[in-house]
Amino acid sequence: MSSLTETAHWIACARAAESFRPDRLFDDPLAVEFIRRTAPDLYTELRSAPSSRFDTLAVRTKFFDDCLMRAVSESGHRQVVVLAAGMDGRAFRLPWPEGVTLYEVDLPEAVEEKAGFLASCGLATDRCSRVAVPADLTADWPSALLDAGFRSELPTVWLAEGVLYYLTEDQVDAVVGQVTELSSPGSVLCLEQVNTDLYRAPWMREWLQQMRDEGRPWRSGVADPETWLAHRGWHAVVREPCDLAEATGRLVPRTPPRGVSGAARTWLVRADLVNATAAA
């Protein structure tokens, strides 16, 4: 099992934990069933004592849920791509409009594991047309996506959540460049990334070392996401978890205003492709 597949399991734990809370921001039955089957002791613990240790991840999930729903509801987009989907349950739990096709791109072993789990539990019913695409984001994943039926001439909603900081800066630039090349005008890009100061913050050193020791090192960051994406033709609106209304009353770290150096930040981005010439 790859380290990124293990990360997908951890995200499922976080979403299951949120689903047990009486004040939950979302309900993810797929994550709950996955944890019940694979980590029964943790399942029992979370049911009896809902935890706040995943609050930032819950706020992040809710932010991207809303971004995706606005894009398909207000803009009429019917093609969605989730990169490094893992055990993501959005195909099963979000109220997708009729006609949506959702492509889940992930490592072949992750796609196989999820398919086996879905077949065994009999729990999930797709609320859209879900297409699993086994591919490595550091290889030729666009060809696999196109072979699976993706149509680059249609406006697309993209989601890259919880994955980019595991890639090198060159790999991230390549992925965003490939997304841009596959996108027609009006496409929407939702992504998460961290800032470069995060890697210099003293209070992050121990945690970053732990991630390296577990084989899941964080490798990249972006200091100015608006400018970074503007160079590729995208107009980005950037938030941090603590900015969101859903963070009220949650254990979400506060950060100082933008422009204050030395702060570890998580960027939550919704970007629209507005300059097809720059993208090309």
Rank of each mutant, 00 (worst) to 15 (best):
A12Q: 02
C13Q: 11
S19F: 01
P22M: 01
D23E: 12
P29G: 08
F34L: 15
T38A: 05
L42V: 05
S48Y: 00
A49W: 01
V59F: 08
T61G: 15
V82N: 07
L83R: 06
L83W: 06
R93G: 08
P97H: 06
E98A: 14
A119C: 03
S120M: 04
C121P: 00
L123I: 02
A124L: 02
R127A: 09
A132N: 13
P134G: 05
A135V: 06
A139Y: 00
D147F: 01
A148Y: 01
S152F: 12
T156R: 03
E161M: 05
T168L: 01
Q171A: 15
V176T: 12
E181F: 08
L182G: 11
V188K: 02
C190A: 12
T196R: 11
T196N: 03
W207P: 00
Q210G: 11
R212A: 15
D213H: 07
P217T: 03
W218V: 06
V222Q: 01
G233M: 06
W234E: 06
H235R: 15
A245H: 12
E246C: 04
A247E: 08
A247C: 10
L251S: 13
P256K: 07
P257A: 15
V260A: 10
G262H: 10
D272V: 14
A276E: 14
